[in-house]
């Protein structure tokens, strides 16, 4: 069931997404190093190299532990990995740093609901 739920925002050989995830945000808030790690994580996730993608995101989080985009990206990878419990709690972690960024919160909510549906 989850096979169709890939949410990697990169175009490419990812399985056909059921829903279109919002476009990747690579705004000025990320440092160059973190933006680079995020980009390679997306490429790895799109190519199905999920553990490598997660490792890059964890590295980025060591640099910017309060960056809600990184937590969200990691939640998305967990979803793809089929680790629904971690997908849900990691998206919640993203929310805890999201402030009033409603678009980010909405996407976290979407991940949480998707993870919950998959666990049922």
């Amino acid at each position: 069931m989850l096979a169709g739920c890939a949410t990697a925002p990169e175009p490419g050989p990812a399985p056909a997404p059921v829903e279109q995830a919002p476009p990747p945000y690579l705004g000025p808030r990320e440092s160059v190093a973190v933006a680079g790690l995020m980009e390679s994580a997306r490429a790895d996730a799109a190519a199905g190299r999920l553990p490598t993608a997660a490792a890059s995101l964890e590295r980025a989080l060591r640099i910017e532990p309060r960056n809600p985009r990184l937590w969200q990206e990691l939640a998305r990878v967990r979803l793809q990995q089929g680790d629904f419990a971690q997908a849900e709690s990691t998206a919640a972690r993203s929310n805890s740093w999201a402030g009033n960024d409603s678009a980010l919160r909405a996407e976290n909510q979407r991940i949480i609901e998707q993870a919950r549906a998959a666990r049922r």
């Binding site: 553990p51 997660a54 971690q86 709690s89 919640a92 972690r93």
Partner: peptide, 12 residues
């Protein structure tokens, strides 16, 4: 080459 990863886990 990684043999085993201890991933970051969070639980609310």
């Amino acid at each position: 080459r990684p043999l085993q990863r201890y991933a970051l886990k969070v639980e609310q």
